[in-house]
Amino acid sequence: MTLDFAAILTPQYTQWMLSGAMTSLALFASAWVLAFLTASLLVAIGSAPFRPAQFTVATFVEYHRNIPMLVQIFVWYFAMPQLLPDAWTTWINAHNSEFIFALIALFLNSAAYMSEDMRSGLRSLPREQMEAGRALGLSYLQTMRDVLLPQAIRAALPPLINQSLALFKATSLAMAIGVAEMTYASRQVENETYRTFETFAIASAFYVTLSFAIMALGAWVDRRNQKAAGH
């Protein structure tokens, strides 16, 4: 087997791969931000002393934890358009519906996992924290936002970083509904050039680089936490 990277680095294919990489990154970044915000919201709702709220959040989490990511993407892409108002569907279809549905499925799934991570972070905090906040005259939401969440996030950081890695890798599943992200692009280039090894090597290098960056962040946080625990 002779390697020939030049064969796949023509302007055309380079353009495909680059745009695939950008799409992957855009999907990851936007899904991460939305997931994080949604997860925070879920934690706030779920910890309210109101049973139906807790039940709703628990159901949301269980749904996303017990169904494959790919199936969740399919549900959004194939089934949801039938259930959404026509105006919405029309709008989404006019705006790259594949990307939007993949984004929704990815961020909702990640939000479910992230909210669980944050919740166990919260649970690790002493109960008195909420009372202390309320005693100072802060409202429930203020105590949540200014006192509990920041601490919980620190405790939840290691699993959150793990979840970020899972989310980044899960963006590759968007190819199943035709989102031209990195995996999709590499398969396309491979189909045209038959340069399987070279194409997959480049795509893998992309994933490994970013994943390693996320893992390095996780290792750094672990070290810092260990130091903090030591003294």
């Binding site: 963006t171 995996t183 590499s186 398969r187 491979e190 994933y207």
Partner: peptide, 22 residues
Amino acid sequence: VSVVRALPLLMLIFWAYFIVPL
């Protein structure tokens, strides 16, 4: 462990498709 954990399962499937026959 690190390399496998860094790759999406889909990439591993594509690699397997390519490498196992070789």
